[in-house]
Each structure stands twice: as C-alpha cells, then as structure tokens.
Design a binder for these strands. Structure first.
Lengths: 134, 134
DNA sequence: ATATGTGCAAAGGGTTTGCAGATAT
DNA sequence: ATATCTGCAAACCCTTTGCACATAT
C-alpha cells in the first residue's frame, strides 16, 4: 500500500512528471478512504508544508481525468477516492464519514446499458445512519 | 399535475403558509423533471417576476426537509425533483440533461439494511451518454 | 533547454444569512 | 395581531484561473 515505485511507475505511464506533491497525494489516497480537497490539504501539509490549494486541486482533477481517481459530490463538496470496482458509498449522517459497502451493482449496469446508455461512471450514494455498524 | 388544491392541501398539512411563490414552485416541480435553483428561478420569473433567489432556496430546502422534494448534487449544483419511488438519475454528458430511469433498486436497499444501516436517502447517479435514446 | 508543475492571490459560481418590510393566518 | 415569509444585499464556502517562478525531464 502506497508503494512508491508503483506510484512513480503509474505517473510515468500516464506521462505525468513525478513531483513530491503528486507522490504524496497518491500515497495518501492509495491507503483507501474518501477525502475532500480540504482533508487532502491538511494531511499533505504534514509532509509538504507549503503545498497549495491549487496544486491539490490540479492533481486531484488530473488524476480523475486519467481514471486513477473517482470523484463524487456530497455535502456541498467534491470527494475523491481511488477508482476500483463499483461499490456503494454510504454517508453517515451522524459521523459525517463515508464508507464503502461492496455490493454488486452489475444488475443496474446491465439494465441501463440495455436502454442504449453508455455508462461513463456509476455512483450509488446512500445517506443514512450507521449506528450499529462500527 | 400541478393541481392547485392539492398543493394548498399539501402545504397546509405541513404547517406552511400558502404563498404564491410556494404554489408556483410546487406546480413547476410536480410536472416532473429535475431542476437547479437557477432553472427554477428562470421559470418562476415568468409567473412571479420579482421572486428572489433566497426565496427559491428557502422554499426548495424547506420542501426537501419536509420530504416533499429530493435533492442531489451533480455538476457542482444541487438538483431538485419531486420525491417518488427510488429510481436512477442518468446525467447525459452530451446534453447535460438528467433523466429518470425506473429500475428496481430494492436489492441494494435490502443488502444495505442487512448491514444495520438505516437508509435515509438513496441516490443512484449515472454519468453517461444517452445517444441512441431519445 | 524547455515543457510542465507549483504556489500565490484574485476571481468565479453556487448557496446561505441577516434583516427590514410585506403577507398569510 | 403576529408569526412567518419575502426580497435585497452582503457574506460564505468551494473551486477555478492567471501568472511568475521553480522543477523534472
């Protein structure tokens, strides 16, 4: 997790320059979880104290465009996560946290494709109360 | 569709005052479709030329809070629609339009409930290309 | 050497807020 | 009569943009 050589390889393969900022951002996100720009910025400042808002946005948006990250909007902010198998994002109204729930959504994809719609991205966002789950 | 007496009844039943602005907003949304605040404002100004941004926001947010409308976020904006059976919102990247696709999502609801999560709202948002569909 | 990336500050777009005057009950 | 609602303007996020300097290749 967060393997540096893997990250360098990934950036190079996409034609991106390998900068400390980009490596740090990818290391953070590769450990899993969901982050807003603000959360990324705060974490990154521990490692790269001078990293700027625009660099974080630039990087996140670039990585989304290249398909490395996914983004979705909730609570008035954009959230970023590593792109992986389609899943469900559950937003807990008590804790404000977002968690992944791995449920098969291929039935929905199949139905929608049948209608002639080419799916670029699928987001299942559930707002709820996760008390009872840890 | 947009039955005025029905709307008046609805507002009264929620303890809201029946104002021309609220009636007009509900009439618009009861005909179906998805609207941003801006779209609502533009439509409403045809009927109530002096209606203000804050009134539109106030009304939309109040109606969401009372469960009459649903809202979700996409493309940096909040979208509003009448609350009805769970369905899928497909955002067409070409036309920018949002359309409903009625697909059963109860399987997902069941799975998530099993995990002890109390669902307050379920959103399935698909970004795609609707060429081929009309 | 040079194309690309970074940091800063300013601008942009959507949404909320505070408040005085207006309106529904 | 009065609690609620409306409209206006200002304030508040979050995100993007322009540009000079710095850095990776």
């Amino acid at each position: 997790m967060g393997n540096i050589n893997e990250i360098i390889e990934l950036l190079r393969s996409k034609g991106l320059k390998v900068t400390p900022q980009r490596v740090a951002i990818l290391q953070l996100l590769m450990n899993g979880g969901h982050f807003t720009m603000d959360q990324v910025l705060n974490e990154l400042r521990k490692i790269e104290p001078n990293i700027s808002i625009s660099t974080v946005y630039n990087t996140l948006n670039t990585l989304v465009r290249l398909g490395i990250l996914r983004s979705f909007e909730a609570d008035g902010k954009t959230w970023y996560e590593m792109r992986k198998d389609p899943h469900i994002n559950v937003i807990c109204e008590d804790t404000g946290q977002i968690m992944d729930v791995d449920i098969d959504v291929s039935a929905i994809e199949r139905e929608v494709s049948k209608l002639g719609i080419e799916i670029k991205d699928l987001n299942v966002i559930i707002r709820g109360n996760c008390r009872g789950t840890s």
